[in-house]
Amino acid sequence: MNAFRLAGDMTHLLSVVVLLLKIHTIKSCAGISLKTQELYALVFAARYLDLFIHFISLYNTVMKLVFLASSFSIVWYMRRHKIVRRTYDKDHDTFRHHFLVLPCLALALLINERFTFREVMWAFSIYLEAVAILPQLVLLQRTRNIDNLTGQYVFFLGAYRVLYILNWIYRYFTEPHFVHWISWVAGIVQTLLYADFFYYYIMSWKNNVKLELPA
């Protein structure tokens, strides 16, 4: 495992920790899109189907379990926890996320590495992850007062994607047989979605003003 990959996984983990901190400790999910969180839970469920079939490493298994458990518990908190769910900004989180699922499934049936159940589900999870941030970005645009933890959560998620691209470039030169075009193309699309957010996040940090995205 190279340094970019490890750093990418760690920022991904950090984003989850930041979100859980906000939800568990502050008991607030204000500014967080339940739609995006539901899509992530679906992404991990579809991608980690081989969790108990193919053993890669202890690291791999533990991280998969962490992402599965955290994504489903976040959805549970936002839907069921009697304090947290009251802070959910339902009126602004209106992205029709179900309409992302079917096109991703159709694309996975058409473009996959092998036409098997697990490979189609893997491709589906890659496509869905690429667009899963959209409801969150839309909600941020509609949020007048983006708190620091929410901004940091999205920033770490975006950083994770940038680091994964650097990891692929590194692997391309060091492991020439390692080529997953599907995840590379989808990953680049996913990272580009953050470009706008990154711009405003860095500007607000540089100018020391509160983060706000133009509508």
Partner: peptide, 10 residues
């Protein structure tokens, strides 16, 4: 092995 394309990423 070469060409194995194991999916070891998260």
């Amino acid at each position: 092995a070469a060409g194995d394309n194991v999916k070891d990423e998260l």
